[in-house]
């Protein structure tokens, strides 16, 4: 574009950063991360939030996302941070966004950001995996075989090609629980976020590998929490805790 310069424009600076936790529920768990990005940007405009924009030829709203769950997985704990040009009460931001987004994309919490390095605070995820038509002893045996293994290599197609990685080591905890709606068992996994993210699909692939566990119905997966990992108790904490103290 040579001699063309970005138009002179007063770019209002970011006055406040608000971090939101949102859930992807029910049928909208089929929305991809990009689908959510568009929905959020439009929701922000519908809600009339004073969103900040980047400078340049194609100004973009100042929003950053952390670590989204794969398409098809539901989640109770997705995170994004938005830059505003005026300070708003975080609860008002939450309520305005929640009502602007369609049911199923629900904004459940918001805090003003007082800290940096938020993404690094998301150390682990807590997943819930529903296995329909799988007997409890079968699932328990598969879990035990998984737990006993030192390393379980699985493969997944990535943008760069087929990747092989260990799905065992990052799993800090794996539990099997009966479900009230038998025949169905619930797997609960606490998984550390490492360079190649181990997803619930990878855990299932590992269970197939070590114990031939083959759920007859595609499992329903939900991320219950993301946050700092307490290695002693294997629990995932609240990543907003530091900001709330702020």
């Amino acid at each position: 574009m040579g001699n063309r310069r970005p138009p002179d424009r007063d770019i209002a600076p970011v006055a406040q950063r608000v971090r939101i936790r949102y859930a992807r529920r029910g049928r909208l768990r089929f929305s991809s991360h990009r689908d959510f990005q568009r929905a959020l940007e439009r929701g922000i405009r519908r809600a009339g939030l004073p969103i900040a924009f980047s400078a340049g030829f194609s100004p973009h709203p100042k929003i950053s996302y952390a670590n989204s769950a794969p398409t098809g997985a539901a989640s109770e704990a997705e995170y994004a941070e938005i830059g505003l040009t005026a300070a708003w009460d975080p609860e008002a931001v939450r309520a305005a966004l929640d009502s602007a987004l369609p049911p199923g994309l629900d904004v459940v919490d918001a805090v003003e950001a007082h800290t940096s390095d938020f993404a690094q605070r998301l150390e682990a995820s807590h997943w819930r995996i529903e296995l329909v038509d799988v007997e409890l002893p079968v699932a328990q045996a598969a879990r035990d075989a998984f737990w006993a293994a030192g390393r379980i290599e699985v493969q997944r197609m990535a943008k760069s090609g087929l990747r092989t990685f260990d799905a065992r080591e990052p799993v800090a905890q794996l539990q099997v629980e009966p479900d009230s709606q038998a025949p169905c068992v619930i797997l609960k996994a606490v998984v550390r976020h490492v360079t190649v993210t181990v997803r619930p699909d990878d855990v299932l692939a590992a269970l197939r590998r070590v114990a031939d566990l083959e759920p007859p119905v595609p499992p329903r997966v939900t991320r219950l929490a993301q946050g700092p990992l307490d290695e002693a108790t294997c629990t995932v904490g609240d990543p907003f805790a530091l900001d709330r103290r702020g």
């Binding site: 049928r27 909208l28 089929f30 929305s31 991809s32 689908d35 929905a39 439009r42 519908r46 398409t71 098809g72 602007a100 987004l101 369609p102 049911p103 199923g104 595609p218």
Partner: peptide, 14 residues
Amino acid sequence: ARISKPIQYVGGEV
């Protein structure tokens, strides 16, 4: 869960 771009079939648009 077994097809591509399932979001197009679920409705729920604003």
